[in-house]
Design a protein around this nucleic acid. Structure first.
Length: 217
DNA sequence: ATCCCGAGGG
DNA sequence: CCCTCTGGAT
């Protein structure tokens, strides 16, 4: 697929998805510390759930230094409603302690350093870098991104590293952060693994999978 | 009942 | 690769 078509896909998805009543929204990051902690907490939950806990958490633990002195057991009830609270309480306290002990209380700004923090994987590091620091570090390929990219025709590969390389080559750097989430949203809402909703799809006319489907009949 | 904008661990 | 960890929204 050429860049023009890819960018047309990007434009259509960008215009549509913020408006469609998605139940998830990007967290408004106040500072890198809060951004990091909130993003760790966001794994496998809604941002609404994380936002619901925001004030209680950060009024009690406003800085990495304060959170580092806490015990996971006392943090756990505060974040209970988001789920996975047992592991996540340990993650954020452990992360705060490493920030203080090894990074001078600051959030590191490289993928390598971020990923050494407990609870921070590729996806979380990507989000923190792109949203909190404006550093574009590529596209995190999950199952949604993989499926959608293959169907539309952004890539021919099933290898996540090659898929990322193809996507990165196809979109301008400023778009990486957004295209990442647009593909995930689109994959969940419309381009589902089973019974994709072609009637609702904004980019069906540009989609390789959809065109092949119709050509066969 | 079903799904989940992940990470860690086996 | 597989599994587990959890509550909440729908």
């Amino acid at each position: 697929m050429n860049r023009e078509t890819a960018c047309e896909v990007y434009r259509r998805l960008l215009e549509h998805y913020p408006v469609v009543g998605e139940r998830r929204h990007f967290i408004d990051f106040a500072n890198p510390y809060e951004a990091l902690i909130q993003t760790i907490l966001s794994a496998q939950t809604t941002d609404r759930a994380v936002n619901a806990v925001h004030d209680a958490l950060f009024s009690r633990y406003p800085t990495p230094e304060v959170l580092a002195r806490a015990e996971p057991e006392e943090v756990e009830p505060i974040i209970h409603s988001i789920g996975f609270h047992h592991a996540k309480a340990r993650y954020i306290v452990g992360t705060a302690r490493r920030l203080v002990a090894e990074f001078g209380g600051e959030v590191p700004q490289t993928m390598e350093e971020l990923r050494t923090l407990p609870g921070v994987g590729r996806k979380t590091a990507n989000i923190v870098l792109s949203h909190a620091f404006g550093i574009n570090v590529g596209i995190a390929v999950d199952t949604h991104v993989r499926r959608v990219s293959k169907r539309i025709g952004f890539t021919n590969s099933t290898n996540p590293d090659i898929i990322e390389r193809d996507l990165v080559a196809l979109f301008p750097e400023e778009a990486w952060r957004d295209i990442n989430y647009l593909l995930i949203r689109h994959g969940r809402a419309v381009c589902t693994a089973q019974n994709p909703k072609h009637e609702q799809c904004l980019v069906a006319d540009l989609c390789r999978y959809y065109r092949a489907l119709n050509a066969g009949e």
